[in-house]
Design a protein around this nucleic acid. Structure first.
Lengths: 167, 167
DNA sequence: TATTGTTATACTCTATAACTATA
DNA sequence: TATAGTTATAGAGTATAACAATA
């Protein structure tokens, strides 16, 4: 890095026609970025989501859709707007997620008794079965990506992440 | 949650025309998701990137573009392909990032001596100045989001995240 | 033949505004 | 008038294939 920083031979050259010296690829690292929480979060998230997609394979359930299914299972009859506020998903995006679940026969919308503007959501029998299968794979993926951590480190990581986005 | 799980009154009703009972919003939480590393990472990353955008304000530099500028400053003359491999950005996306930096006068492309297919990248004087200003804001944002952690917790978090995506 | 940079394309995610039906 | 759900649209991120210039 010292060599690269001198800039003695590698000047930008406002004058065109100048050719640039090589940077020795062996010297290159991302140390200047590695101290940022945001950069580390991003890289970790990409790695985790990539494993998620690989593990779920042909099920074709995205993380956001999995989170919706899990919440609908935990709270049968939950409305889209309640889901939106708790999962921090925009209502307009929720429409597509729910519509896809319905089109695949995994969920149904039912008008709410108290407020007929709202739709209560329920998993169908096939939806419950799909979620059971998918949940096993998600758990497997979570174990897989946590494999580099001890159980204690995993709990510490979860607690620190919660501190970042909660109170 | 116990009430919601019984499903006694809230059955999906394959029969249409049935109306759904309300779910008590006060009972709703994301506990079923909070134990997943991937979910916690995603929520934390959204919070951090949101603060990043808010803090940088009118500078209109996205995280990916900031990472490129920082690497070009550390390694003047670095090529797009080297940047791509180290930042894990697709070459086709790098084109747009670099083009935008050039269009704004923050960077220049210079043909490489050894391999004239490659373009060495350099920050211009205005680019250096912009990066200096932006880096202060990024550091401020990082301090801001780290405020809920002790210095030791922050280091622990970084170390655990690195374990997730590195060796 | 293989690689660098590029163009084109497409799909997902994110964000906003506007509309409808209900309240 | 306000809210739930919807539609439409646009910008950004991600991924792939194909092409020109160069190796």
């Amino acid at each position: 890095m010292a060599r690269a920083r001198t800039g003695s031979t590698n000047a930008p050259g406002e004058r065109l026609g100048v050719l640039a010296d090589d940077v020795d690829e062996a010297d290159v690292n991302t140390r200047a970025l590695d101290t940022y929480i945001g950069y580390a979060l991003r890289r970790a998230q990409v790695a985790v989501f990539s494993d998620f997609a690989r593990t779920l394979g042909e099920h074709d359930i995205r993380p956001a859709q999995f989170s919706v299914m899990l919440m609908v299972q935990a709270y049968p009859g939950i409305t889209q707007s309640t889901l939106c506020s708790h999962l921090d998903i925009e209502p307009s995006r929720m429409v597509g997620l729910v519509h896809d679940l319905e089109a695949r026969g995994f969920a149904v919308r039912v008008r709410c008794k108290s407020d007929r503007r709202s739709h209560g959501l329920f998993l169908t029998k096939p939806g419950e079965a799909e979620l059971t299968a998918v949940k096993q794979l998600v758990d497997e993926s979570d174990r897989h990506i946590s494999a580099r951590l001890t159980g204690e480190e995993r709990e510490t990581l979860l607690a620190l992440l919660h501190k970042l986005y909660q109170g």
